[in-house]
Design a binder for these strands. Structure first.
Length: 231
DNA sequence: CGATTTTGACCGGCGC
DNA sequence: GCGCCGGTCAAAATCG
């Protein structure tokens, strides 16, 4: 029975890896498309573009991932000049309602230095500083969304002045094990999956149960956010 | 015992 | 000047 269970778990793990790979591929194609559009747009109307971004930053309902390369420059004339170069990006992460920890795992080490209850949102806002490097100026704020309390909104301020921590310290199990990042291992792995006779049955059995499982959705969301932060 | 979290105090900007 | 509010500090508590 244990062997059967182990076998089943291995197959599930393979399927999850496939799903993550597909998601990564979709993300990369979308990202490439976005960059192309941005370059095309910026060559024509640079001024209008910056105005649009400025307005976009003020939008309250952030419902998608703004990658770290989409930086909104501080346009306020009252800010000191050195802060003008500060980049701000927001990332929304879906979690389960039962998970009350306001923690967005992204591979970096963060030290909490404050928490406040703000006027426009009943849930407390947590303040973090990057603790991976002593001189790293990056801060982030994490707060649950007003509209959907199961969504954590993380606001990143500044840019890391140090390399990303090693993958062993990230929180994405599949990546930790080198399944995704090791090309040799990964190719053999995909070959194994493609020749598996169990594949169709497994997909048929797993998709309905996994899609109903909130913890699975949360795990995938966390994994994807971890991958995004490294791209 | 060092690192991290908690939490009330404090600070500065802003509107009135 | 005063009060409100978001952000930060720092001492105490907690964790590993």
């Amino acid at each position: 029975m244990l062997e059967e269970e182990l076998k089943r778990m291995k197959e599930e793990n393979k399927k999850l890896a496939t799903m993550l790979t597909t998601l990564c591929e979709n993300y990369n194609s979308l990202r490439t498309h976005l960059i192309e559009l941005q370059q095309k747009h910026s060559t024509h109307e640079e001024d209008n573009n910056s105005k649009l971004l400025s307005r976009k930053r003020k939008a309250e309902d952030v419902c998608c991932v703004n990658n770290s390369d989409i930086n909104f420059e501080e346009a306020s004339p009252k800010r000191p000049r050195e802060i003008i170069t500060t980049s701000i990006s927001t990332v929304s992460v879906k979690t389960t309602l039962s998970d009350q920890t306001s923690l967005v795992k992204d591979g970096y080490n963060w030290r909490k230095y404050g928490q406040k209850v703000t006027r426009d949102n009943p849930s407390p806002r947590a303040y973090y500083k990057c603790s991976f490097a002593p001189t790293c100026p990056v801060k982030k704020k994490v707060q649950r969304s007003v509209k959907d309390p199961s969504v954590l909104v993380a606001t990143y301020e500044g840019e890391h002045n140090h390399p990303h921590p090693s993958q062993a310290e990230t929180t994405v199990p599949l990546v930790n094990q080198g399944v995704i990042t090791n090309p040799t291992f990964f190719n053999k792995f995909m070959e194994d999956i493609n020749t598996s006779s169990l594949q169709k049955d497994l997909v048929a059995k797993m998709v309905p149960s996994l899609s109903k499982n909130p913890s699975f959705a949360a795990t995938v969301a966390t994994a994807i956010s971890g991958i995004f932060s490294r791209i």
